[in-house]
């Protein structure tokens, strides 16, 4: 079942179209990646999901019904630009945010103590936020986001500003929340973390949804029929020989032994066996394997193609 459905949402500001007919479905209990270059419209979409701004057209369905203000109590949002009241004490502030999400004062204090103990920051309770370092404030902010056990969590670049140890701790907590039944929407530029923790993704470019689906499938399909060949000899000759069977060549970094590597796309209908024999006639083949694209490649390629289509 989908916890969140975004249906044909558009939003325009005076100078530009922020979202152009975007649709996506977020399955419950998964980690969902929301990707896209800067200024693509991700933050606008997140704000619409958070009921902060209203779409010009289209609708947002949360747990089967149209999203209302009351639903925000079941959503936790960690914005990319973090912010806390600087002059307020850490504990008071966390209680304030928890109460805004519908917790009673007593529940808020009890839950907060648990989390503060877990993150080993109980001693900060009476400190003012301005006395904390940036990383410390980030921890507090993370706790504030997840404290009310929201059904849907939205993290916008959650790892930025964390050192590797704390980033790992954070990742662990996010996956734990997922195991406990929360759904996570995860907006980031960090593609390796997408590969690690996202089940599904949507890629937004220039206000439009240009790619949606399961991460593994996308990786397999999007760059399907591509191979890396490791060889010794003249690369130009190799490409000439392969020309009838394959295309879209790109020379990769040489491997550890200094042997050349070429990535190519096998033409539809061409057989890999023919390609291997053609290559074998021109160079010394040291190895050949199917290439699985990284999310990074997919991101760059999809955005480039989309931009190319539009020009």
């Amino acid at each position: 079942m989908d916890i969140l459905q975004v249906e044909n949402v558009s939003k325009a500001y005076s100078s530009h179209l922020a979202l152009d007919n975007v649709s996506l479905n977020v399955p419950a209990g998964e980690v969902y990646g929301l990707l896209g270059p800067n200024g693509a419209g991700k933050t606008t979409l997140i704000r619409i999901i958070n009921h902060i701004t209203a779409p010009d057209s289209g609708r947002v369905i949360f747990e089967g019904h149209q999203l209302t203000q009351a639903d925000v109590e079941h959503i936790g949002y960690l914005p990319e630009e973090r912010g806390l009241y600087k002059k307020m004490k850490v504990g008071e502030q966390a209680v304030f945010f928890a109460r805004l999400k519908g917790l009673s004062k007593q529940d808020a204090v009890r839950e907060l103590r648990k989390w503060f103990e877990k993150f080993d920051i109980l001693s900060w309770w009476d400190k003012k936020v301005e006395e904390l370092s940036k990383g410390m404030a980030q921890k507090v902010q993370f706790i504030v986001t997840v404290l009310h056990r929201p059904k849907l969590l939205i993290f916008d670049e959650p790892f930025s500003g964390f050192d590797p140890i704390n980033a790992a701790l954070l990742k662990e907590e996010i996956l734990k929340l997922k195991d406990e039944g929360s759904t996570v929407i995860f907006s980031t530029h960090n593609m390796s973390s997408v590969e690690e923790i996202c089940d599904n993704i949507t890629l937004i470019n220039k206000s439009r949804n240009i790619l949606s689906g399961n991460v593994d499938e996308i990786r397999r399909q999007y760059f399907g029929n591509r191979y890396d060949i490791t060889f010794g000899g003249d690369a130009r000759t190799l490409m000439e020989r392969l020309q009838p069977l394959a295309g879209d060549f790109s020379l990769l970094e040489p491997d550890a032994q200094g042997r050349q590597r070429l990535n190519f796309h096998l033409n539809d209908g061409a057989s890999l066996r023919d390609a291997i024999s053609a290559a074998n006639e021109s160079v010394v083949i040291a190895g050949l394997n199917e290439s699985i694209a990284s999310m990074n490649d997919i991101f760059i390629r999809a955005v480039k193609e989309d931009s190319g289509n539009q020009v």
Binding site: N50, I52, Q69, V72, E73, I75, Y77, P79, E81, R82, G83, L84, Y85, K86, F97, L100, K101, Q141, V144
Partner: peptide, 17 residues
């Protein structure tokens, strides 16, 4: 100030502006 230190975005995800 709230706008400057971006706490606003956190607050308005819980209450209407």
């Amino acid at each position: 100030e709230e706008k400057g230190n971006r706490v606003l975005e956190v607050v308005v995800s819980s209450v209407k502006p």
